[in-house]
């Protein structure tokens, strides 16, 4: 086992002031967040059994109820969800979401080699890729954020099943519009007492590890700075046939 690659470049422009720092995260009234968000797309992916679908639901719930964003969360259904590829998609916005599926990803979380390889092409040019450092041995991009989620869950939390929540903690740190307190609250509310403590620990661990090792949170795409590459690749029809 090698350690987490520390030399991977962060997937964000160095100078971008993080919205998180700038906006102070709203005040947690659950209705509307200080942050305006046009349309932010997230895919959580990995293998069946890694808790990807639960992670999608938890993240969606936290962003929708805890933060007050509009969220649509969809996921892969069917036989491929067991043992094979598993996937949960989220669209987050300050405005009502018309098209509920993801088009082009701002953040791709991949907890398996297969998932990283299959979904990398859906990432926007400046989208962020977050991978499990141990399970994705060959990152499709040198610009990837990596943490050993599975190992952290096993060794530091003592519960391998908490991998998804460790990753959720890292996502909570990386998303400039997410607040860890709201995530924690949402997690507490949705989990049964028995497993609550371990999961809160996992969430905090993921958050702290990300803060320590991944640098600044992701910068939001500039809503006014037209992204030509992005626009050129916006043929949704073609994308969705694969989806």
């Amino acid at each position: 086992m090698t350690g987490a690659p520390k030399d991977k470049t962060l997937a964000k422009p160095a100078k971008a002031a993080t919205a998180k720092a700038a906006n102070g995260n709203g005040n947690g009234n659950g209705n509307g967040n200080g942050q305006t968000l046009a349309r932010y797309e997230i895919r959580l992916s990995g293998l069946g059994g890694q808790g990807i679908l639960t992670m999608g639901k938890l993240l969606g719930q936290a962003l929708a109820i805890g933060h007050g964003y509009y969220v649509t969360q969809t996921q892969s259904y069917g036989p491929e969800a067991r043992g094979g590829a598993s996937r949960a998609d989220l669209v987050v916005s300050s405005e009502p979401i018309s098209y509920p599926k993801t088009e082009y990803l701002d953040l791709l979380v991949a907890l398996s080699q297969e998932a990283a390889a299959s979904y990398y092409s859906y990432l926007k040019p400046r989208g962020a890729l977050l991978i499990d450092a141990d399970l994705v041995r060959q990152s499709p991009s040198s610009v990837a954020l990596a943490l050993p989620f599975t190992r952290l869950a096993r060794e530091k939390v003592g519960v391998p099943q908490a991998t998804n929540v460790v990753a959720l903690g890292a996502v909570a740190y990386l998303l400039p519009f997410a607040r860890i307190e709201a995530m924690r609250k949402s997690l507490k509310e949705s989990l049964p007492e028995k497993i609550r403590e371990a999961n809160i620990k996992a969430l905090n661990l993921g958050y702290q590890e990300a803060k320590k090792r991944l640098g600044e949170p992701i910068a939001l795409p500039d809503p006014d700075g037209g992204d030509e590459v992005y626009a050129a690749r916006m043929d949704l029809t073609e994308i969705m046939t694969e989806d």
Binding site: K57, G60, Q61, I65, V71, T72, T74, Y77, P100, K101
Partner: peptide
């Protein structure tokens, strides 16, 4: 339809 039924929203 399957999309409406299987999409989570608030």
């Amino acid at each position: 339809d399957e999309i409406t039924a299987h999409t989570r929203e608030k």
